[in-house]
């Protein structure tokens, strides 16, 4: 499996416990860069000051750190641009009863 796909698969194990949906399907990942075993992730949360801030950021690091060949994981949170529901996958919208 391609390293990028492997990273995304691991990120899908990190759920937002309030919604029960993983952070990839929620559309929280804005940018993912992988260079020579170093991962940089720029992501957001569904609301500024989300009380699950530390839990989710920590979860992202833990989910990726044990992948073979990964040396360092950097996670940055941004509120700009703010998250919007349009970023969610169809599956996530279905889980929330949107359809």
């Amino acid at each position: 499996m391609d390293i990028r796909e492997l990273v995304l698969e691991q990120l899908r194990t990190v759920i937002d416990p309030e919604l029960g949906i993983n952070i990839v399907d929620l559309g929280l990942i804005y940018d993912l860069q992988i260079n020579d075993g170093n991962i940089y992730i720029l992501m957001t949360l569904t609301t500024p000051g989300c009380p699950l801030h530390d839990s989710i950021v920590g979860g992202v690091k833990r989910a990726l750190e044990h992948i073979d060949g990964i040396r360092d994981v950097q996670v940055q949170i941004t509120w700009n641009p703010p998250w919007t529901p349009e970023r969610m996958s169809e599956e996530a919208l279905r889980q929330l009863g949107y359809f």
Binding site: P51, I77, T78
Partner: peptide, 10 residues
């Protein structure tokens, strides 16, 4: 996109 790293948990 502007990165910010801020945690406010009590």
């Amino acid at each position: 996109m502007i990165p910010t790293n801020t945690a406010y948990e009590t």
